[in-house]
């Protein structure tokens, strides 16, 4: 039987987490090929709606990675993300969706290894959970 390969959408902010992902690259740190990154300027641009859309369109998990608290290039954007994601997680669990399918975390520009670890962890977590399926009818 072939192993389930989860599809993961990752939102990266330009200044920290995207740079961290770049560093993972230049440092040749190997990680699971399941993630597809979308670059935004700030994690504050991530609308919870995007996350729902991603799941709705077939993603099995969604990662949102921003600058560490206090390090946001735009001062406070990542705090807005904290508030939204905290609420979204509560709502998702009321929707019966495993909260592990959505993860908010922080990666700085020097944390290439951390980026790789998070993507690997997420891939494994989602692999264990299995594909995301909406219930219908």
């Amino acid at each position: 039987m072939t192993r389930f390969e989860p599809k993961i959408v990752v939102f990266l902010c330009n200044w920290c987490s995207y740079a961290g992902a770049d560093l993972a690259g230049t440092s040749r740190i190997q990680y699971a090929p399941n993630a597809r990154a979308i670059r935004l300027m700030c994690s504050g641009r991530v609308e919870p709606y995007f996350i729902l859309e991603a799941l709705h369109k077939g993603a099995d998990g969604v990662l949102v990675l921003g600058c560490h608290p206090g390090e946001c290039h735009y001062l406070e954007g990542n705090y807005r993300t904290v508030g939204r994601m905290a609420l979204l997680k509560k709502v998702l669990s009321q929707f019966g969706i495993e909260k592990e399918r959505v993860r908010l975390d922080w990666v700085s520009a020097s944390e290439g290894a951390r980026f790789a670890t998070i993507v690997n962890e997420m891939t494994e977590t989602i692999r264990t959970l299995g594909p995301f399926e909406e219930k219908d009818a």
């Binding site: 609308e47 919870p48 709606y49 608290p69 206090g70 406070e76 705090y79 807005r80 904290v82 508030g83 939204r84 994601m85 905290a86 609420l87 979204l88 509560k90 709502v91 009321q94 929707f95």
Partner: peptide, 28 residues
């Protein structure tokens, strides 16, 4: 949800989560 999450008066992730926890039955 997004609007509410965006207007919380705190820059402390722990406090932000506590404030959010004050919303009873968010999905409902």
């Amino acid at each position: 949800l997004t609007a509410l999450g965006s207007i919380i008066d705190s820059t402390d992730p722990v406090e932000i989560k506590q404030i959010v926890d004050g919303i009873v039955d968010p999905a409902g």
